[in-house]
Every structure is written in C-alpha cells, then in structure tokens.
Design a protein around this nucleic acid. Structure first.
Lengths: 335, 335
DNA sequence: TTGAAAGCGCTAACAT
DNA sequence: ATGTTAGCGCTTTCAA
C-alpha cells in the first residue's frame, strides 16, 4: 500500500492528455473539448484523484480560504456560540474555521497564533488572553488581518467587538438596588480580564450612583470557574452579615453561585451576566443580563471578511448591547 | 503596501547567507555557527519572517498537522464538548482542528469532507449525517484516515465510537417503570438518525420486558429541536389519557419537554438522554442518562491518531457506557 | 483547443 | 559549517 496519492500528472497520463488539460477540467476552465473533458473526468474518478489544495494555494499565491479562531474554551457555551456565529459567516465567504482553545494561557495563545499564521490563514479572530505580552502577540500577528472579540487588544488600530460590560453590570446592580437590596455581593473573574474589570467597575458605579457604600468584604474577584464561584458564594453566605443579593459576573460564576445558594438554602437574589440554558426553568428562574454571543462572532467575522477583502477604513469598535431579562431571581426582596 | 511576505530567500539575502542556512536556523538544525545563526535570527526578526507552512508541507510530502472534525452544530453543548475532547488529543499530537457544522445536511457534509481532504488534513473525525448516500461519502474520504463518532457509517471497516444508546434508553424506561409508570411517552429525533432509532428501540424493549403494551399515541419521533419537542410534549399532555412520564431522547428534546411540562403545570415524570447544565438546580431536578461527550471526542481522536501513525489493526468499535443520574424528575410517581 | 516551461516557498540530498 | 541543486503538485505564462 505504499502508493502515494494520484497527482494531476497521473491523471494526465491515464487520460492521455497533458497536465494542463487536467488542470483546466478540474478548475472548470473553458477551451476543453467535451470528449476530452469526459476522458479526464473518467481518469479522475478511476484514480480517485483529489486536487492538492496546498500546492494550489502555494502556486496561486492566493488565499488558504481559512480563518483562525482563538477562544478560551470551545466547551464553554459562551464561546461555542461565538464559534457558530463565526462559522456561519466564514462559510458564506467560502472559508473554513480552524479553532483553538487558549485556556487563558498566553503561551498557548502565542503558539496558536504562530501556528495559524504559518499556515497562512486568511485572517485571525482572537479573544485575547490578558496575562501575556501584547507586543509579542502583535509581532506574530503582523501581516495577517485580525479582529479581536470580547476583549480589546492593547492595539488601538485593531478592529474590536465588545459587549457593553459596563452598562450591563450597572443595569444588573441597579435592578437589585431598585428591589431594595443594599448588601449586594459581586463575583467576578480574574482581574486581568478586561470583562471582569469592567463588570466589577459597573457594579461599583451602580452602588455609588445610588449612594450605597460598597463593602469590600462582599466582593470576590479572581473566580474563574464554577467551583471557585461556588466556594466564594458559600463563604459570602456564611458571613455574619451576609449579602441579600449577588451579581455574578459570567455564565460559569452564575452557575457556581446558584449551586451555593441552593446548597445553603437561602433566599438570596441573583442577577447573572450572560444568559444560561434552562435559566427559565430553575426553581427560581434566573434573572440575567443577556446578549448574543453568536452575533458577536458574526460581527467580528464580518469585520474580518472586510479586511481580508482589502477594506482599509479606520479601526472599527463595535459595542454590542445587553438587555436585562427578569425571570425571578433578581426580583427576590431582601430577606 | 504592495510588499509580499518575506521568504527565506529574502532573509538569506538580508543576512548574507544561503537559503539553506536560513532553513537550518529556522528548523533548529545543528551545524550552524552561533554567530551566523545570530545574524539570521536578526534578519528574521527585522523582516518579520514567518515560515510558510504550506510550502514546507508540500515539499516534505508530509503531514499538515491538522485534523478535520465534522459535527452537526458546534453551538450544541453535546458537540462542543466532543470538540473539546478532540482538541485536547489533537493538541497533544501537535495538530490543529478544523471543525465544521454539517447541520445534518448531507450536501453540506460532502462539501466539508471534500474541502478538508483537498487541504490534506491528516485525518477526519465525522459524526455522519444520515440522509445522504454513504457511498459518495466513502469515495471522498478514501485515502484519508477517518473515525466516526456517535453514529456508525455504513462502512464495517471504519473505526467507530458510539454511546450505549440501547442500554441507556432501556435503563431510563426501566427506571420509570420501576417507579410505577405505565403510560410513558417517548420523544425522539429524526428516524433517519441512528441514535434516535436505538433510543426508540430501547424504549420499546424496556416496555416489552415489563409486559407493558406500547401505546403508539405516546411516541413522537422526528423532533429535532427544542421547539419541536415542546410542541409534541404539549400535545401529549393534552391527550384524553395523557402520559404520566416521558423519556426524552436527547439534550434538546429534554429541554423542550421540560418547558412544555412547566407550562402545562403537570407533575409529569421525565428521564432525559444526555446530561444538561443546571439539571440539578431545576424546580424538579432532572434525572438523566449521563455519559461523557468529551471522552467520546478523546477516544475517537486517539483512534484517529493511531491510524495516522500507521496502526493497521482491525476496525475498532468502542461503545461508551451511560449511567443513570437520579435527581428527582425520574422519581415522580404516576399522578 | 492543447501543451511545454517556469516557478510558488520550502526541504532533502548531495556537494564543498 | 555552509552552499547548490532538484523537486513537492499545482497554476501561470506563453507557445503551438
């Protein structure tokens, strides 16, 4: 079975024509007599020939018709929805998506970027990790069109699609304040992460706007997964003067907080950032700050598509809206 | 801006060495004087050179260090968990994952396969759509190692990783029967889909084993999304003699059924196939037939990795176990 | 309507 | 320790 894949040469030999004629048939070019084309197609089918796209792209100097997508974790619904939005746009543009999970590890991110650039993807869509050196990243990307999602790169010249984190967080906390809460806890992700900082800030701003003194004991930052959030929430509920409400800074933290509240059996109000599946069916349906991750993916991919096609306009900064979806958990009154 | 990307040639010229020396430095080969290597590295940095992987692979006759993954929909948690498992194994093998959603459309699937094969992915991981012509698919795949997930291809020579659908479904319905139910509804996906057929069959077998006469009016097949399942469930609950329990054939159908039951306000028992996020926190926590999608992805990817490396053993057929997770909804007694 | 020759950017094999 | 040559499989250019 040491037989290599058939090439156009092989097909040409089998069909008794020149290599160029095979190329014409494969690419649907004109100026081939129907019966010649037929013979070539026969040979292609007989040999099981499949054009080698690497060679084609190399010689054509053209596009690879692929884009790279770097997110934190495909298994997280937030990112997998983004990926789907991206794929839909990429498909329309005739491109495939090569996606990779950085796991928030800057080294892993750089590796992915390098790999993707060396493969000459037509463009890059990146949720930038925030602990690495932005300059190293920029160096690697240089020469490949790139759009950033969910978090800004340091680069002011880069196209970026963000969610209105500040506004969303403020809305969440406003809502809890409006329902009479004063001791409102805040659960957020690693402080390096832009969205976490913004949501934390939105929380503080909402309190300040209502003249409520923020209690640092009620803020837990640096929670990056369901378990971490659960532990933090359990601690908060065990406080001598526990919070009557909590703002959970993302989908994972919302799940963690819900588990902890359920385990503690308290009637703690909650508003979460990001919508979560089945939120409407919980014992107490979950009030959230909702937005459209797939739409973020689509918009970013469309921006990228434009750049790939040569758009040379000023950098775009898209801010996607959020909306409060009141379902019950955010409307629980203070104990 | 008409400047093309720098090549090894350009680097060689800039460093005053030959192309081959640049190649040696880039590939970390030995037999380069440290100071020469230094000069080359300088030139690389100055020009922003990045090796063209297409050319490298073409010449080396080697692997593209990528694998293709074709699933139904990345946004569905079941598939995104698979994707993550696949990615982890691919990463360990130094490969990237190019993934595409077929949306259960055979034409789209063929397009993806062709595209991926022409790009010379090292291997293919496929959740085969089941409405197309298996022979056309097999023809396209020929020459590229492939492993099938979640559903068998027609091809008995193909490596396949499946879930124990039959056993899982039987366990689910056994459980409901054991809790005293006799009128048990069944919600399953399109009958073309292997897993739907198996789960339907498991349902029937469990009833038969308990000597319970199956009522065709309680079976709704061909439900492929949350809404479809919701409508079907609403209809079932409106029956003159409604079911007291339901077996939901996958994660989406479980969600739809839960919504309908919630809306109808009945105390209908439910066991779902696939675990769902937050199932434990629902008003009535959801009993499910759980399994590990990520593990399915990993095992399939490992099988593929082996084939890529030349394993020539007989076709593998892996059957992954399920387990019943009793959380409440499956233990509701008949009304 | 068809074909021959050159070359995309790189690595393998062979000099030196 | 460094360079030269050939060629991966295709498309492009030019000739017939």
């Amino acid at each position: 079975m040491g037989d290599r894949r058939p090439t156009m040469r092989d097909v040409a030999a089998a069909a008794g024509v020149s290599l160029k004629t095979v190329s014409r048939v494969v690419n649907g070019e004109s100026f081939v007599r129907p019966d010649t084309a037929e013979r070539v197609r026969d040979a292609i089918a007989r040999l099981g020939f499949q054009r080698n796209d690497l060679a084609r792209t190399l010689r054509g100097g053209g596009r690879t018709r692929s884009i790279g997508l770097i997110i934190e974790d495909v298994a997280n619904p937030f990112y997998s929805q983004i990926a789907r939005g991206v794929e839909d746009v990429a498909r329309a543009g005739g491109r495939l998506v090569i996606s990779g999970s950085s796991d928030e590890d800057p080294a892993r991110e750089l590796l992915l970027i390098r790999s993707l650039c060396e493969r000459r993807v037509d463009g890059l869509l990146i949720v930038p990790s925030q602990t690495g050196d932005p300059r190293r990243r920029a160096e690697l990307i240089a020469g490949t069109p790139a759009v950033f999602l969910d978090r800004p790169a340091d680069d002011p010249a880069a196209d970026t699609v963000l969610i209105d984190n500040l506004g969303g967080a403020r809305t969440a906390v406003d809502h809890l304040l409006a329902h009479g809460h004063r001791r409102i806890a805040c659960l957020v992700d690693l402080p390096e992460i832009f969205t976490a900082r913004q949501r934390h800030q939105g929380y503080l701003e909402a309190l300040a706007a209502h003249g409520v003194q923020a209690d640092p004991a009620l803020v837990r930052t640096g929670r990056h997964d369901v378990r971490g959030a659960g532990h933090a929430m359990t601690e908060l509920l065990a406080l001598p003067d526990p919070p009557t409400a909590v703002f959970a800074g993302n989908n994972l933290l919302t799940v963690g907080a819900l588990r902890a509240i359920g385990a503690a059996g308290t009637r703690t109000a909650l508003v979460g950032f990001d919508d979560v599946e089945l939120a409407d069916l919980l014992a107490t349906p979950v009030t959230v700050i909702a937005h459209e991750p797939a739409d973020m993916g689509r918009q970013a991919a469309e921006l990228l598509e434009g750049r790939i096609r040569g758009d040379t306009g000023p950098p775009a900064r898209i801010l996607l809206p959020t909306r409060l979806v009141a379902r019950g958990s955010g409307e629980i009154p203070p104990g």
